[in-house]
Amino acid sequence: MTISLLHKVGGFAAALALALALALPVLWSPHLAVAAEGAANAADVAAGKALTFDRKKGNCLACHALSGGTQTGNAGPALKDMKTRFPDSEFLYDRIYDEQKYNPMTVMPTYGKNHALSEAEIRQIVAYLLSL
């Protein structure tokens, strides 16, 4: 149907609109939103900290040492110098979303893939972690 319509109007505008329509979801992707907002968003950082510490949400302290955290576990690496280790916030987002994709033997929960955290929640955690 789309193709026949394109043929009928034969226009450059149609192709342009089509390209835009296809590109829009990409432009709106959460990854780029993270980059756009940056880690400086204080509200996100605060919300992210709460999620990181919450035992029913990120519960990151179960495995990771973290400045300001008590009773932290040692199953995973300490969460520090995050900006140096993850200059690309998109990459950090992906690791929290589905670490198994990068490391099949990981013991880190696949938070995004398994809907343990929403995309917005992971973005907030990323904002907080990059402030460490």
Partner: peptide, 21 residues
């Protein structure tokens, strides 16, 4: 660029967007 062409383009965009929505 004619108005009808633009309209056609928008229609095409809708055709793509509606199933996505």
């Amino acid at each position: 660029m004619s108005l009808s062409m633009l309209r056609g383009g928008l229609l095409a965009a809708l055709c793509v967007a509606v199933p996505t929505l």
